[in-house]
């Protein structure tokens, strides 16, 4: 474990917590893409499927973190699609998730480390995570704005994989560890946040709200 991966995971936990708090406190999921949250839940379930296959005692933090990610993302989907369904902005959350799931699944079958079920599920989860934020960014471009709290969520969510890139550089240099598929997907994922990062740094940090040119 290195500092980059530690802060990456903390940033990821923060993102999940910020979103949960926003929905729970405001009792509304306006401005939140339910599709992105569904895709993240699918990512966690397919990536941590080993939790279900052979139950390992929860003594180590990694297992606990995996369970937190899965339960928090499923609970977030429950809040969006059931509890606060009335506030779900279905009209603007209109990016076709199939256009992300099918290519990710196809690519996972073509480009993977080992052609076996668990490995393909892991690869699918990595590819899907890289593009899972697109419905959320699409929704913001449709509504033309993002609530400040949602911007903080996106910043934390984007920073998590950006920090992982630093972690991979660190591990390559000191442990000569390379996981090419995760690195390539992680770079793509972080690039998708670039224009948001620019808006966040130039606007939200100064207390302004992100309003996209309609």
């Amino acid at each position: 474990m290195n500092i980059f991966r530690l802060f990456g995971d903390l940033s990821h936990l923060a993102a999940i917590a910020i979103l949960l708090l926003k929905i729970w406190k405001t009792r509304s999921c306006a401005g939140v893409s339910g599709k992105t949250q569904l895709l993240f839940a699918v990512c966690f379930i397919t990536r941590y499927i080993d939790l279900f296959l052979h139950f390992v005692s929860l003594y180590n933090t990694e297992k606990v973190m995996k369970l937190i990610y899965i339960s928090a993302s499923v609970f977030t989907c429950y809040l969006i699609f059931f509890k606060f369904k009335a506030t779900y902005d279905g009209n603007h959350d209109s990016m076709r998730a199939e256009f992300l799931i099918v290519p990710a699944a196809g690519l996972a079958c073509l480009i993977n480390t080992k052609f076996d079920a668990i490995e393909i599920l892991w690869t699918f989860s990595i590819y899907l995570e890289a593009v899972a934020i697109l419905p959320q960014l699409f929704l913001i471009s449709k509504t033309g704005e993002a609530e400040t709290i949602t911007s903080h969520y996106l910043f934390a969510q984007g920073s998590y994989r950006a920090l992982y890139i630093l972690n991979w550089i660190y591990r390559y240099h000191y442990e000569s560890h390379v996981d090419t598929i995760a690195i390539v997907a992680g770079v793509v994922q972080t690039i998708l946040y670039c224009d948001f990062f620019y808006l966040y740094i130039t606007k939200v940090v100064k207390g302004q709200k992100i309003v996209l040119p309609a």
Binding site: R5, D9, H12, H54, E62, T113, W122, N167, D179, A182
Partner: peptide
């Protein structure tokens, strides 16, 4: 046993 968890990250 079995699972040589190559991917040791979350």
């Amino acid at each position: 046993y079995g699972c040589d968890a190559v991917h040791d990250e979350l």
